[in-house]
């Protein structure tokens, strides 16, 4: 057989579609969650009152089983759901959010809702580890908010950011659970992820293709993590 399984896999349109969708999802979801998490962490780190309450609010989605919340998502984004009814109220046509091109946006939203809190906590930990003296010195030297952020916060938070990034990528690859619960075995073509592909191959007893796909994904993720480690170590050296 040799590389025939890989060759067949790479020629498979379903695999290519799944890979493409996964990349698009990562490209949109991961930066978005990173930015939002960092933003919320910065806001929470301003010393506001009720920090523990807000932190709990951010953590709660992480501890709630997705399966129980999927129902809410379906009610919200069904063709005759709350959102569509709201649109119809304003004279716009109803949209089947889960079974249309909008399904990717719904999945991204679900992914952010689920994982944002965890990332915020990680970023908060990273932010808390930055010595306060650095900020005080910078303020005495006349540094502004943006300067403090770019010159102090960002460099010091890069290791945490890297960790959050890796975790976000891993979580984004695990979004199959949400996708499966939201749209079933064969979801809309826009949210047909690699996990869907692998799960279906497993169900069809096509282990050869499944193994080839798993190996390929492992290689790709390994390479990606390697690149990220290199990048992180370079930044770490710069900081030192």
């Amino acid at each position: 057989m040799g590389l025939k399984n890989f060759e067949s896999l790479l020629r498979s349109e379903s695999f290519l579609l799944a890979a493409k969708n996964t990349l698009i999802f990562n490209a949109i979801g991961v930066p978005l969650i990173m930015l939002l998490s960092l933003g919320f962490a910065l806001l929470l780190n301003t010393g506001i009152k009720g920090l523990s309450f807000y932190r709990s609010c951010f953590i709660l989605p992480l501890v709630v089983p997705v399966a129980s919340v999927i129902l809410v998502w379906q009610i919200l984004f069904h063709e005759h759901g709350a959102l569509s009814q709201l649109l119809q109220h304003f004279g716009l046509p109803a949209v089947d959010w889960i079974n249309s091109k909008w399904s990717l946006a719904v999945l991204v939203l679900l992914y952010i809702w689920k994982n944002c809190g965890y990332n915020v906590v990680l970023f908060l930990a990273g932010l808390n580890s930055i010595p306060r003296e650095y900020y005080e010195s910078a303020r005495i030297d006349g540094a502004g908010l943006w300067t403090c952020f770019t010159q102090i916060t960002l460099p010091f938070i890069t290791p945490t950011g890297f960790f959050v990034l890796v975790l976000s990528i891993i979580n984004s690859l695990k979004v199959f659970r949400e996708s499966y619960q939201l749209a079933g075995n064969y979801p809309d073509m826009h949210i047909y992820m690699l996990q869907n592909f692998m799960n279906n191959n497993f169900a069809n007893l096509n282990y050869q293709r499944l193994s080839a796909a798993a190996f390929l994904i492992f290689v790709v993720i390994g390479l990606m993590v390697l690149v990220l480690f290199r990048f992180e170590s370079r930044i770490g050296r710069d900081l030192e």
Binding site: F40, L43, L44, Y54, L60, V72, W73, W113
Partner: peptide, 19 residues
């Protein structure tokens, strides 16, 4: 800041409250 954080918290809590 409070408004932003409260809105974000509400959005995150909404599905659970609804459930």
């Amino acid at each position: 800041i409070y408004i932003l954080l409260t809105a974000a918290s509400a959005a995150l809590l909404f599905p659970m409250v609804y459930m």
